[in-house]
Simulated scan of single mutants.
Amino acid sequence: MTDQQKGSLEDRLKRLDAELAEKRRTDGAEEAAETRAAESRTGYAVAMKLSSEFVAAVIVGALLGYLLDHFAGTGPWGMIALLLLGFGAGVLNVMRAAGMVASPHPVDRLAGRDGSKTKDGA
């Protein structure tokens, strides 16, 4: 009777090993699919961020140009100039966010101040 119990235990152990191996394969496939989906969501989020930055810059330029034309009476020229300026600012923002153009260094932003001098004034 003990030989029969050993045999049935070994059979069950082999069956459980096979089931575990199958489960591990399906878990690996599910993890890979989840990783691909996470990468896709990340790419979509970056695309939405970049496009919204660009559109916002163009809209702000157009709105400021319209307001300039309305209050100063300059005709379409303020709208045209500031719309083009907004377009340029949008392209620059997208390129900075994408890492193609470095953001300005803090010292460069303070160009008129003592950015080139050392602490002891020399």
Rank of each mutant, 00 (worst) to 15 (best):
T2R: 11
T2N: 11
D3L: 07
Q4E: 14
Q5I: 08
K6Y: 03
K6R: 11
K6F: 08
K6N: 11
G7A: 13
E10N: 02
E10T: 04
R12E: 15
L13C: 02
L13A: 05
L13S: 06
L13I: 09
K14L: 09
K14A: 10
R15W: 03
L16E: 05
A18M: 06
E19T: 12
A21V: 10
K23F: 09
R24P: 00
R25V: 14
T26G: 03
T26L: 11
D27W: 12
G28V: 11
G28Y: 06
G28P: 01
G28E: 15
G28M: 12
E30L: 15
E30G: 08
E31C: 03
E31S: 12
E31W: 04
A33V: 12
A33D: 15
R36H: 08
R36W: 00
A37E: 14
A38I: 09
E39H: 11
S40Q: 09
S40D: 07
R41V: 04
A45T: 02
A45Q: 08
A45G: 07
V46G: 02
V46D: 13
A47K: 12
A47D: 13
M48G: 03
M48S: 07
M48I: 06
K49W: 04
K49L: 13
K49V: 03
L50I: 08
S51C: 01
S51T: 07
S52R: 10
E53N: 03
V55E: 00
V55S: 05
V55I: 13
V55A: 11
V58P: 01
V58K: 00
V58Q: 01
V58E: 00
I59G: 02
I59D: 06
V60T: 12
V60E: 09
G61A: 02
G61M: 03
A62L: 14
L63D: 06
L64H: 01
G65H: 03
Y66P: 00
Y66N: 07
L67H: 04
L67A: 13
L67T: 09
L67D: 04
L68I: 09
D69M: 08
H70E: 13
F71C: 02
F71G: 05
F71K: 01
A72G: 02
A72I: 13
G73M: 10
T74Y: 15
G75H: 06
P76H: 10
W77M: 13
G78R: 06
I80V: 15
L82E: 07
L82A: 10
L83P: 00
L84S: 08
G86C: 02
F87I: 10
G88K: 07
L92I: 13
L92E: 11
N93W: 11
N93M: 10
V94G: 07
M95I: 09
M95V: 14
R96F: 03
A97H: 07
A97G: 06
A98S: 14
A98I: 04
A98G: 14
A98E: 08
G99D: 00
M100C: 05
A102F: 02
A102D: 12
S103A: 14
H105R: 14
P106H: 05
D108Q: 09
R109T: 14
L110E: 03
L110V: 02
L110Y: 00
G112W: 02
R113Y: 10
R113W: 10
D114Q: 08
G115F: 08
G115S: 13
S116H: 07
D120C: 01
D120Q: 04
D120G: 01
G121S: 04
G121R: 05
A122V: 05
